[in-house]
Design a protein around this nucleic acid. Structure first.
Lengths: 207, 207, 207, 207
DNA sequence: AATGAATGAGAGTTCATTCAT
DNA sequence: AATGAATGAACTCTCATTCAT
């Protein structure tokens, strides 16, 4: 990806982070090279030394975004004895963690998803990110289905997309914390086979 | 909402539609008063005659967007004999219809959802739209649950949010037609009680 | 002057007065045809029906201004038995009266004096006003000098200009009420012969 | 005032001077950032680089104006042996000099005096200038009165204001050169004690 | 007599980008 | 590696004026 510049300089990194922050708070509409430079404590001219055109900076932010999704992890969830299930639960936990500790992550992702429609360079970065994510989830689901842990009424592929769109949609809508948690739980249960959680009560009826 | 102005002039309407188109294609970043005016075949000055400031136009587009979601309907689905279930199926059909016939609708909605974070006027319009939508779905679900047609393992409220976020998320991710259809089917089945569709095959395994 | 339109319509008069008010408060910079029309309760288009171009309105305001200087009179001062002296005292009293009851008058005059530098039509109106004023004062002074009531160390012409520039200057500088009164008194005494007011104390030394 | 920025860049200075010229010729109404920039041989964008908003430029012009009044001096008048009297005569000579060599100075001052009514930043600059001027004149007058050179029938304070308003008024009215000279002479004599110029003729009667 | 609708020309301001240093 | 200075192009918004009705 950013194979050309193998070792991103400290300055570049800082610029990318500042740009990320500004996109998070003001969207692409509010992203000014001047503001980014100023936030990084350098001049605009210097910014353009590192990123000759604004779009390069934006692509760099997209890559930074991809990376953050990998790096920002919730504390490891307790194992339930099944690797794929554990992985899935960790992912949901991560989602909740992001909501609480780095809420910008999903917002910026949304910004990029929209922008990618008109920017081929971004499309590549984001498509790769999404594909990787999809394959990861699908892998877990297939494993779980083989092991008889997950429901088999839907294909792993469809189920993976379902999970993805659910998570992405949850951050578009501005749901409150409680609702979000309930949704994630419901999502988890929807994947598992009934017998695994027969101890569940009937209708929560929390409304 | 804009009920006060009962009869929006033709010019105003046209401007709003052109603005909608431009947002759909180029995002808010690409929304220029000049382009909108030009697309409507009038001068910028005239645009400002109708919408003194750009933001007014944007709010008008938001209202237009709200309205479109109501207006743009897929052909009525065949009834299965239960009003709430029919309503739900119609909604999912509409979603599919939107994907095919007015794909801009969801894109523009996403644009507005992001922008609403920084624009109070938009927040009101969109929050109202979402709340109305939520209540509508929840109503159907409650009815269906009472009638023993829908699953009762999750509250109608949570389930409604699940559906909403699923639909919204589906349009963020650029899923292909086939996948989208599969997701909507899976969504429908997830809501129904098991016995109602015991004739379903096991694992589609379409991957 | 405004000989063409012999009988200024009520509407026209109203527009002129509103324009005057706006110039008084916001200067020529702030004079917008729209604001004038709005203040008069009519549309811009109608304003342009009466005054095809903005400059016509401005000239009309200049004439209104001229007229106001004549109309706005302080209550008659007590006579001291000499017509010219009385007239002069009345003029000074008027100046004070204007300061208190129609402070806009001088401000607008200043606006017009500056604008007249670039507008020939205004030049004519204002030059006529000033000339008339000058002749009036000079007439009184000459009479007074002949009658031995006024000082004769300066020509009536010069003295008249002196009075005029003093009065005009006083309204440019933003003097407070007390200072203004003191200046006007000093001005009066400067014109009279010493013997007429030998009863005056020596040095006021009010500083 | 603008003492903080000790070394105003050449470009800034040039812009201020061009703005001054334009105000002199076309008033504030005619002051366009584009024209100023063009007159200075640079682009509008560059102008805004130095003066982010037009008002900053205007304040800078006000400061330039203040400074010019100090800088532009007539050749030193011949001394009459009394410092305060000499200073006063120098000031009157300066006024005449301004009329002839930089007639814009007073015009621009009038423009600013009017504008200051609506612009607090200008008010400060101009009020400071006027106050300084007033104190200066008053100081001379007090000295002269103490030394028995100047009339004492009016307080130094009032007399100073009288001189100021006279000078300001003279430039509002468009007096010709001869009249102006006569007024200044009359003003000088009005201040001096009678005995000092007993050699004066009676009535010039130049009308 | 009156106006809603429309507009050309132009205003101040912004911004990514360039370049000499 | 870094920047102050400079700019073209474009932005939103304003305003006197016109014209069909």
């Amino acid at each position: 990806m950013s194979a050309v510049v193998q070792e991103t300089s400290c300055r570049q990194q800082c610029l990318v982070e500042r740009a990320f922050d500004i996109i998070a708070e003001e969207g692409f509409e509010g992203l000014r090279t001047r503001s980014v430079a100023q936030a990084a404590g350098i001049s605009v001219a210097t910014l353009h030394y590192y990123f000759p055109v604004k779009d390069h900076l934006i692509v760099a932010v997209a890559e930074y975004l991809s990376e953050q999704f990998r790096r920002q992890q919730a504390p490891a969830v307790s194992s339930v004895g099944h690797a794929a299930y554990d992985a899935l639960r960790q992912m949901l936990a991560n989602h909740l963690y992001h909501r609480q500790h780095c809420p910008h992550l999903m917002v910026v992702m949304q910004e990029f998803l929209l922008r990618a429609r008109r920017d081929v360079a971004l499309q590549q970065v984001l498509a790769a990110l999404q594909a990787r994510w999809h394959e990861e989830i699908k892998g877990w689901l297939q494993q779980g289905q083989q092991d008889g842990v997950f429901v088999r009424d839907v294909s792993a592929d469809t189920l993976a997309y379902q999970i993805q769109s659910q998570l992405v949609g949850m951050s578009s809508l501005s749901l409150n914390e409680v609702t979000a948690k309930a949704l994630l739980e419901a999502l988890e249960q929807r994947i598992l086979l009934q017998q695994m959680h027969s101890d569940e009560g009937e209708v929560p009826d929390e409304d």
